[in-house]
Design a protein around this nucleic acid. Structure first.
Length: 215
DNA sequence: AATGAATGCAACCGCACTCTG
DNA sequence: ACAGAGTGCGGTTGCATTCAT
C-alpha cells in the first residue's frame, strides 16, 4: 500500500520556525546526551512523521515505530499522541448533550473506567472524556451536592456555546502550530493545526487530503 | 493596559496487566 | 513457571489561554 503524504522536507519554509525550535532543543539534548528522548509538546514535524510512518507501515510495536520513524520519543509517547490526537477517526470538539448524558450514565455505572466509557463513544478518547469529566462535570457535582443530570446538561450546553466552542475548534492549546503563522505567514505549504478556520489545515483536513491522494 | 486567578487540555508518570520466549 | 518487554489505564502535572479585577 502506498500512503505517502508528500511530506515537506525539513528545509521547507513550513517547518522553519518549528524546526528551529526543535533543533535548538535537539542541540541541547545532543550536547548533553545523545540518546535522551524528547518530552513535552509534539511539534508538527513529529506529528507528520508519525502519521506518515503509520500510514505506510501500520500500527505495530510502538517502541519500534518510534525508533524506525526516527522519532526521538518513547513508544509510549507515540502511542498516546496517535490515539489521543492523530488518529483519523478521532473526533474533536464539542461533546454533544447526548454524549454528555451517556458519559454521566456510564460513569455512574462504571466509575472512572475511562477507556471503557470511551469505547461507547466512537471517536472520543479516554483522555478527552477524563478531562471533560474532571473539568466540567465533577466541578458541577461538587458545587451542587445533588447530582442532577438534566441540570448539568442544560448549564453545560450554555457554556458549550461559548467558551467550550473555542476550546478545540479555534485551536485550543495548539499554540506551537499556529504560532508559525505569525512568523511565516506566507508559507507556501498548508498550515497544519487543529483549527477549522480558513487559513489553517486541520488534522481532519490532513486525513481527507490523504484519502484524496488515493490510498 | 496590566496582572493575577481560573480554566482546559496535552502529555507525562507509575502501576498493573498481558504477551512472549 | 518465570522474567522481561510491551501495552493499557487512571491519576497528575505543566502550561497556554481566558477571564476578572
Amino acid at each position: 500500500m502506498s500512503h505517502s503524504f508528500c511530506l515537506p522536507g525539513p528545509s521547507s519554509p513550513l517547518f522553519s520556525p518549528m524546526v528551529e525550535e526543535a533543533n535548538s532543543m535537539d542541540k541541547r539534548i545532543n550536547s548533553s546526551q545523545e540518546a535522551e528522548v524528547r518530552k513535552g509538546p509534539w511539534t508538527m514535524e513529529e506529528d507528520l512523521i508519525l502519521i506518515n510512518y503509520i500510514a505506510n507501515h501500520g500500527e505495530g510495536v510502538w517502541n519500534n515505530i518510534a525508533r524506525s520513524a526516527g522519532l526521538n520519543r518513547t513508544g509510549k509517547s507515540c502511542r498516546l499522541r496517535w490515539l489521543n490526537y492523530l488518529r483519523p477517526d478521532v473526533r474533536r470538539g464539542n461533546i454533544t448533550p447526548e454524549e454528555q448524558l451517556l458519559i454521566m450514565e456510564l460513569h455512574a455505572r462504571w466509575g472512572n473506567r475511562w477507556s471503557k466509557i470511551a469505547r461507547q463513544l466512537p471517536g472520543r478518547t479516554d483522555n478527552e472524556i477524563k478531562n471533560y469529566w474532571r473539568t466540567r462535570i465533577q466541578k458541577k457535582v461538587k458545587h451542587g451536592e445533588s447530582f442532577d443530570y438534566q441540570h448539568v446538561m442544560l448549564t453545560d450546553e450554555a457554556s458549550t456555546s461559548t467558551s467550550q466552542t473555542n476550546s478545540v475548534e479555534d485551536g485550543g492549546s495548539q499554540p506551537s502550530y499556529t504560532e508559525q503563522h505569525e512568523t511565516n505567514p506566507d508559507a507556501l505549504a498548508p498550515q497544519f493545526s487543529t483549527e477549522s478556520s480558513d487559513n489553517f489545515w486541520s488534522v481532519e483536513d490532513f486525513w481527507s487530503m490523504q484519502s484524496l491522494n488515493g490510498d
